[in-house]
Design a protein around this nucleic acid. Structure first.
Length: 524
RNA sequence: GCACCAUUCGUCUAGGGGUUAGGACACAAGAUUUUCAUUCUUGUAACAGGGGUUCGAUUCCCCUAUGGUGUACCA
């Protein structure tokens, strides 16, 4: 309560413009959890009339995946997350937006830290580091790490004579630059979602700031860029919480603590069973997408469908994602992007991890589908018809969607569920056939067939009237015959209301199908 | 192991010292529907455990348990 009040005040009284960034690394497809982080940043930015920035964190050359950057761009666009600044629409004041293009900048600040005594050179090889860890483990040290104590036993500019350090560097020996974390200090910072967090510096290790390839690590790059880009709020996943104290230290040592951005660490999206955070494999296992749009792995060439390809509307995905970890405090469930922006606040973001529930996503999609016009839905069906080489008047496509929209969740189902509107059935549901198709139904339907032929104006009402006339002659109930008729016309036992369906099919087609069924279907 | 974070129906969550602990998804039943679906109604179902504090704790504090994250020259 207290924290909320504080947060509110500080947000609304912010003099400078809110600037937030989404900073993915181009190591593959953007995960649905990443999309949510982007979304929350976006909602916050728009809510406060601020700026939404995309920064590409490509400091790891080894994990770089070609095409990932374009994927991120396309995925965000599909979701309707607009970027005010990005590699594609840079602001000259803050560009470039790819960390690989900012290499020189980081070096400069790393040097500043060395000069102020807050960082140092380290020459230890991988084998030496491994040996150190083994040694400590053997000595039953609680947490083997490169820190205030162990660094005195390693090869670095703190232990080596100054001229040897110089010689090593000049001779081109590989080195890293490490942060000199103080031995005993309490580091506290405020998180807008979790309140005050305090950690002891002895729990931190001397993080590598600059790698031996001259690239910065995330820790340095992120702090330098957030400062230089004048980021006001860092909204990111909870996996960053443990390293946030390192970042606070960096802001301090770089002399930027007064303008340090505020932190908000979002709860993680967990696997449906709650064991660990959601990963790509869970989608494969659970049969639901974890990517916003389809992704083709450049190595294997394998393509995985995303939400888009699986028939989800971007509005539904955004709505669903927004409610994963955030709630409006009201009972409203359906939100447009504009409504989300209006209602969003970090104060109403929860603290605990949320399990991923695809059932809820399906429900959202269904809601959005039902709300769409027949015209819009017809576009989806039209594509499937084209794919199958079927040409029909648009009015019919629309009519089919109209009849089917209450019973599907994805627009991709229109074709699947309504194929018989366009193609006569070649197979008939065995169970219905054996249960309902008998000599009596054949007799009635034969009568109906001839009644239908003489109907002048054919539509749902007259088709129904004709059947009513026939069954009253035979003295049986409507329910007795209807499913046989449906089977004859569509081949299946269920579907939308039969008479409107017949109207869409048309008189000729109904007669043709009825004739065919009467001639070919075996009587039990 | 160590550090940090978390813990309300199966799931997403609201709430908050005294409530019949509310909603949504899912599930079940009933109604409507000639079928299936939709829709409507109803129902099942939760404060992790133990100590405090208090007249009273699900709510505040502590401990335990459980879960998550981190612990890389990955982000």
């Amino acid at each position: 309560m207290h924290d909320n009040l504080q947060n509110n005040l500080s947000v609304t009284s912010y003099m400078e413009k809110v600037r937030v960034r989404f900073a993915p690394s181009p190591t593959g497809a953007l995960h649905i959890g990443g999309v949510r982080t982007a979304l929350f940043n976006y909602l916050f930015a728009r809510k406060h009339k601020g700026t939404m920035i995309l920064r590409i964190e490509d400091t790891d050359q080894e994990r770089f995946v070609p095409g990932a950057e374009e994927y991120i761009r396309e995925a965000l666009e599909w979701c309707g997350i607009e970027l005010d600044e990005s590699p594609w629409n840079p602001s000259p004041k803050y560009a470039p937006y790819r960390q690989s293009e900012r290499k020189a900048i980081y070096k400069q600040y790393a040097m500043q830290l060395i000069e102020s005594g807050h960082a140092y050179y380290a020459f230890d090889t991988e084998a030496e580091l491994e040996e150190m860890r083994e040694r400590l483990k053997a000595a039953r040290v609680a947490s083997p790490q490169y820190n205030a104590i162990t660094r005195t036993t390693m090869k670095n500019s703190l232990t080596l004579p100054e001229d040897e350090v110089k010689k090593r560097i000049e001779s081109g020996e590989p080195y890293v630059i490490r942060l000199k974390v103080p031995r005993k200090e309490e580091i506290r910072f405020h998180d807008m979602i979790r309140g005050w967090i305090m950690v002891h510096s002895h729990a931190l290790d001397d993080k590598v700031l600059m790698k031996s390839d001259g690239m910065p690590t995330y820790h340095l790059a992120n702090v330098v860029d957030d400062h230089l880009m004048e980021i006001t709020h860092v909204i990111r996943g909870e996996e960053w919480l443990p390293s946030a104290p390192v970042h606070v230290l960096l802001y301090r040592y770089l002399g930027w603590e007064k303008t340090m951005p505020r932190f908000a660490h979002l709860p993680l999206i967990l696997k449906p069973d709650g064991n660990g955070k959601l990963s790509k494999r869970d989608g494969d296992l659970g049969g639901f997408p974890v990517f916003p749009i389809e992704w083709t792995d450049p190595d294997t060439g394998k393509t995985v469908a995303g939400y888009r390809e699986s028939g989800y509307f971007p509005e539904a995905v955004v709505n669903f994602l927004a409610l994963l970890g955030w709630n409006p405090g009201t009972h409203q469930e359906i939100f447009s992007m504009a409504e989300l922006i209006e209602a969003f606040s970090l104060e109403r973001v929860g603290k605990s991890g949320t399990k991923f529930d695809i059932e809820k996503a399906r429900w959202f999609n269904q809601q959005y589908l039902k709300a769409k016009s027949d015209e819009e839905l017809a576009q989806y069906l039209l594509k499937d018809l084209e794919k199958n080489g079927i040409q029909v008047p648009f009015s019919k496509v629309k009519a089919v969607c109209s009849l089917l929209k209450e019973r599907v969740i994805y627009p991709t189902e229109f074709w699947k569920e309504g194929k018989y509107f366009f193609v006569p059935p070649t197979q008939y549901d065995e169970k219905i056939l054996s249960k309902k198709w008998n000599s009596e139904s054949v007799k009635i339907l034969t009568d109906y067939l001839s009644a239908l032929s003489s109907v002048a104006t054919f539509n749902a009402a007259t088709a129904k009237q004709a059947l009513e006339n026939v069954i009253s002659q035979h003295g049986i109930a409507m329910g007795k015959i209807l499913q046989s008729l449906r089977l004859a016309l569509t081949g299946v036992g269920g579907g939308p209301e039969l008479f409107p369906l017949m109207e869409v099919l048309g008189k000729e087609e109904c007669i043709k199908r009825l004739e065919n069924a009467l001639q070919t279907l075996p009587v039990a």
